[in-house]
Design a protein around this nucleic acid. Structure first.
Lengths: 246, 246
DNA sequence: TGACCTCATTTGTCAGGACATTATGATGTC
DNA sequence: GACATCATAATGTCCTGACAAATGAGGTCA
């Protein structure tokens, strides 16, 4: 039962020790060296063997517990979780998701303009009404077929966004590379029947079920960096969400 | 700028000190004593004033950072996040949500039986095919109107579930009070048009848009404790999800 | 045999200290 | 006046040490 995993530490590295430990345990789990249900050595022993202190080991383990890879029980020990839970809780955009799934996404920019914010949008973005904001409308394709109609509002000046770059990359990717650090997103997901315009753009019949998502994304500081109102063809797309409770 | 908040500590309480601190800071934020953007005193000062050690204070702050209430920046300090992000990332059930919203939920149990698991359900629940599992079908009302059609499968023996108790309480609540500790949930959310049976039960027209959710919930150990396939009236309900990235 | 108690094991909490790293504003120089 | 440099302040990392609390297993006693 003793997990005999080898962990190399590089004390001269700028990477924190607890992180090095966490990464290597995580790798061992991924590789199958630590099968689900197997017990880790206790914290004291681990600390001793690696020449680290117990708090450092605890920090590493805590990190993996938060990610949902390990389970701790007082008086029992630390175990690798049973079962294969999908661990994707990341803040991703549709574009990233599609490309990761090998779907070859494409984007048509229908409009991209700067205009004074209306009351509602201003409130959501946390700027005074009338402030210039960026509004864009995009049609997203996957595998040659229309998939979603995307409507976004952003505070202007956040990132230089041109129609050309929006056609080649996802919005999230562009924001991230402009140094915007997104951290929290609030999403409301619903459904409704397609109107005439939407139906035409998405190649669906009027009244076809559409999945709707209204999302506001906030950065580090809790400032809104993006607000979107999207509709997806329900016949071609569904959303996946993983919740982890601490 | 100095946050002059009073924090009472009860060292004789079984509640951990770091948690007492976290709770009271959280309360101060909720009350508005600590407005968004305001800076907390630095860790050393806080520790000193409360008569605690720095690690304890750090643990309290870290807890709130993870919950998305605070933001830390090295060299700068700790601030309350700007903006009012909804902070409900809990593992909740429809019943809890409705009752919290004051909607007076009701449930009609359409069926409740134990039967051998089919291939697909067995795979999802992680039991051998043919194992006895609990299957239930419920109709959920809010404010006197039908709202959702709920289909669930559970490993049998988890909790004693009777039709009567299911009519009065939510499934999650019953599971929790039976000692089941739910920790991770994987949800797939989509939409589709209502079929004839669904339409009749939900008081909608055929073809009306429905929101669909397929969810599997796992416990501490990563064992599946519940699998559900639900449809909601899109005209009356939408889902809200908050993502926090660490 | 079965219920209860005790005890070893393991994680949870907390203290106090040291040094590293990073962001910011002040200072000084060109 | 613009830019580079430096001091300061704050969090990040890591250490040692100690005791508390929960769990599960084994032994004891009726």
């Amino acid at each position: 039962m003793t997990a005999n995993l080898a962990i190399d530490l590089d004390r001269s590295s700028p990477v924190p020790l607890y992180f090095q430990v966490a990464e290597q345990i995580s790798e061992a789990i991924r590789r199958g060296d630590l099968p689900p249900g197997s017990r880790l050595d206790n914290e004291i022993l681990l600390a001793d063997r690696l020449g680290l202190s117990r708090p450092t080991i605890r920090q590493a383990i805590q990190y993996l517990v938060d990610k949902g890879l390990l389970v701790r029980k007082r008086g029992v020990g630390t175990q690798v979780v049973h079962g294969q839970v999908k661990r994707s809780v990341e803040l991703t955009s549709l574009y990233d998701d599609l490309r990761r799934a090998g779907q070859e996404p494409a984007t048509r920019v229908l409009s991209l303009e700067s205009l004074p914010a209306e009351e509602e949008i201003a409130a959501v973005l946390g700027v005074p009404p009338g402030t210039e904001v960026l509004r864009m409308e995009r049609l997203r394709y996957a595998g040659g077929e229309p998939l979603a109609l995307l409507h976004n509002w952003l505070p202007s000046g956040l990132a230089p966004l041109a129609a050309e770059s929006l056609q080649e990359r996802g919005l999230y990717e562009l924001l991230r590379s402009a140094g915007v650090r997104m951290r929290v997103a609030n999403q409301r997901i619903g459904a409704r029947a397609a109107g005439a315009t939407e139906a035409r753009l998405l190649d669906e019949r009027r009244g076809a079920p559409l999945l709707t998502m209204v999302r506001t994304t906030y950065d580090d500081q809790g400032r809104a960096v993006e607000h979107g109102s999207h509709v997806y063809r329900a016949s071609h797309y569904s959303l996946e969400v993983t919740l982890i409770e601490r």
